[in-house]
């Protein structure tokens, strides 16, 4: 008998890693993992469905140029793909962010705790995340490569905001 057991990782449950196993057990575990992910993606509590809806709504509203009245660009499809991936990688311990779009048509994930307690991440669609945060009198900004996992700097800043 085999049991699928998820490792405790600092990222979302919807992140999949390649399963290189060829045995029946490996195949069964991969199937079980897909079932779990399907369950979680529908979960209201975890927030993935909420984020997916917010991404869809933003796409509908901002898919034409000048959606803000100031000549903003329509949503960039590269940013859209990365926004979906980014949302799936967020740990379930992090509250769902506000999802917005900037004047360049790029998705912006925003966690707001007050006027001077805010952290924003711009998903540019170029495997690069631009971030900035205000933590009272302290502030930070930078860019991080966005590969197969969420950059630690982003997670650390989120912990700082939410702690």
């Amino acid at each position: 008998m085999n049991t699928a057991c998820g490792a405790i990782r600092n990222e979302g449950y919807l992140v999949s890693y390649p399963n290189r196993g060829v045995s029946d057990d490996a195949r069964r575990i991969a199937e079980r993992e897909k079932e779990i992910q399907a369950d979680i993606s529908e979960s209201v509590t975890v927030g993935y469905r909420q984020m997916s809806q917010a991404i869809c709504e933003a796409f509908e509203e901002c898919s034409v140029d000048n959606w803000d009245g100031y000549n903003a660009k329509a949503i960039d499809l590269g940013s859209l793909n990365e926004a979906v991936r980014f949302s799936q990688m967020l740990p379930t311990t992090i509250p769902a962010p506000e999802i917005d779009v900037d004047a360049d048509g790029e998705f912006v994930f925003e966690w707001y705790k007050g006027p001077r307690r805010v952290f924003s991440v711009i998903v540019e669609g170029t495997n690069e995340l631009t971030y900035a945060g205000l933590f009272g009198v302290n502030k930070t900004n930078g860019t991080e490569y966005f590969g197969d996992e969420l950059p630690k700097t982003i997670l650390d800043n989120l912990q700082r905001l939410l702690s």
């Binding site: 509203e61 000549n71 004047a103 360049d104 006027p115």
Partner: peptide, 22 residues
């Protein structure tokens, strides 16, 4: 001119409202 530029409940303007195009 976009509801995406402010939080009604939090009575606050969002940072994206002040971000110019690249």
């Amino acid at each position: 001119m976009s509801r995406r530029h402010f939080w009604r409940e939090k009575k606050a303007v969002k940072p994206v409202a002040f971000l110019p195009r690249d």
